[in-house]
Structure formats: C-alpha cells, structure tokens
C-alpha cells in the first residue's frame, strides 16, 4: 500500500508491503538507519521513535498504521549543528557506550521529559523501563536525563 508519513519534518510517500513494520520502513525504505532493532518481542526499545509526539516502539507498528502521522527519529532531533538538550546531555554525562540503544533511549527520554519536565531520578528509571541498555548500567543515562531537564546532577 501507499504510505505517506512526515518523517523528521519531511513528507515521504512510498509504496510498501502491507506487513512492513515501521522500523523497517524507516531503515530500509527511507534509509534512516539510526533507529535500531534489538529484539523481536517489543522488549528492548532500541527502535523507539516518536509518532505524533509520543514514544512508540516502531518494531510493533505497521508502517500502514503510521500513514498520515508525523514521525521523529533521532536524526530529526538536532537543529542544524545545535544538539537537542537530551543529545547534549547524553554526551556530557557519558550516557552511552556502544551506542546501539542510544537513539531509542534518547527518543524515549525526549518523550519522558515532554510528559514530565522535572523528573526525579526514580521517575527517569520508571519512565525508561521500556528501554534496555547493556553497557551503561543506566546510571549515566539517568544523570543525562536529569541534566537535560535542567536539574542539577549530584556528583
């Protein structure tokens, strides 16, 4: 079927198989490979993107379901050379190591901060429960999200 999605502010219109998952549509049809696939059971959150502003796991959404929607991936986050505060905080606080979970983690964090602009550390942990990271032990990710919210990070 023909699927029209606004991706990172740009209108895309493509013909896809009906069963195409949004994550494969982004990666394989549109060439936006930042969004990763880490599992096949909606568990890991590596594929998290925003659909109409809310975080979703793009491995569990058909591209057809996103027809007409606006999708944001990590590639659409920075304003030119200026990093989004969450991106900047992930770098500053070493919230990533291998980087594989990172695009999904950042998008989940963006969505979290949208809903809760001044989260506690516990709020951040709970809010990121749908995203798995094998490298960081999450500590610095929590630091990063707290910092991105403008709050001080204890050291």
């Amino acid at each position: 079927m023909r699927v029209t999605i606004e991706v990172n502010g740009r209108r895309t219109e493509e013909e896809v198989e009906d069963r195409t998952l949004l994550v494969h549509h982004l990666r394989d049809t549109l060439g936006l490979t930042a969004t990763n696939i880490g599992c096949d059971t909606t568990s890991c959150g590596a594929c998290t993107v925003l659909v109409d502003g809310e975080s979703v796991k793009s491995c569990t959404v058909l591209a057809a379901q996103a027809d007409g929607a606006a999708v944001t991936t990590v590639e659409g986050l920075a304003e030119g050379e200026t990093l989004h505060p969450v991106q900047q905080a992930f770098q500053d606080h070493h919230g990533l190591q291998c980087g594989f979970c990172t695009p999904g983690m950042i998008m989940a964090a963006v969505s979290l901060l949208e809903a809760n602009p001044r989260p506690t550390r516990e709020d951040v942990r709970t809010g990121l429960e749908g995203n798995l990271c094998r490298c960081t032990g999450y500590h610095n990710i929590v630091d990063a999200v707290v910092a991105a919210s403008g709050q001080e990070v204890p050291r």
Binding site: R27, G31, T33, A34, T35, N36, I37, V74, E75, L77, A78, L83, Q87, F90, Q91, D92, H94, L96, C98, G99, F100, T102, P103, I106
Partner: peptide
Amino acid sequence: VVRTEDHKLITVGGSYVDDLR
C-alpha cells in the same frame, strides 16, 4: 573528557553492520 565517538552515535546513529550501505 567527553568522547569523540559520541557525536555521530547521538545524531545519525552508528554504522553497525546492518546499517552499512
């Protein structure tokens, strides 16, 4: 020292095997 690796990983994502073009 913040990592030089990070900028790519947080903006356009890494180049993992399945990403290679």
